[in-house]
């Protein structure tokens, strides 16, 4: 996929996300949040990052077969890369639409699957790239200027 221009990153963290594991769901984004607060990232931007990374993590837990989130931090930007091992998205345009969801009822009763995930991520990131191949996996890269 087309990479966002990558600067020299001073901080790199990788979080493994397990599919279907609601015990740990949210921990990675919570860690990311805590970490960025310690660094003194601007409050309003932190809000964007918190929302986008939480959506990304929950997406991985619900929809993917598992994957990882990678956090990259430099003095000017925060990048969050999300890579999963499948199943991949058939129609990205459709998936990006607000309100569209493929989440099964069992997930919806938990309050997830409202179909806001991807669009919410895009709306909160300063730069958002997504690439997916059915049967292979989805790769997302979100950039936040700080």
């Amino acid at each position: 996929m087309e990479e966002l221009r990558v600067n020299e990153y001073n901080l790199k963290d990788i979080y493994t996300i397990e599919a279907g594991n609601f015990v740990t769901a949210g921990e990675a984004s919570s860690n990311i949040k805590t970490l960025l607060k310690r660094l003194g990232v601007n409050s309003s931007k932190l809000r964007n990052i918190a929302i986008a990374s939480y959506e990304a993590e929950i997406n991985l837990v619900i929809h993917s077969k598992g994957g990882q989130m990678e956090l990259l931090v430099s003095p000017n930007e925060v990048i969050i890369k999300i890579d999963d091992i499948g199943p991949g998205i058939e129609n990205i345009e459709l998936a990006m639409k607000e309100g569209y969801s493929t989440a099964p009822d069992s997930i919806r009763v938990m309050g997830f699957g409202a179909g806001m995930g991807l669009s919410n991520m895009r709306n909160n990131a300063d730069d958002f790239k997504i690439e997916s191949k059915l049967g292979e996996g989805t790769h997302i890269c979100m950039k936040f200027n700080i």
Binding site: N10, L11, L35, K37, R38, L39, G40, S43, V73, P75
Partner: peptide, 20 residues
């Protein structure tokens, strides 16, 4: 006003270093 006591350093690069 915010209380920045949890911020590791005023300087972002130093904060990153400390975090590492």
């Amino acid at each position: 006003k915010p209380n920045e006591v949890l911020q590791l350093d005023k300087d972002f690069s130093i904060a990153i270093k400390k975090l590492e």
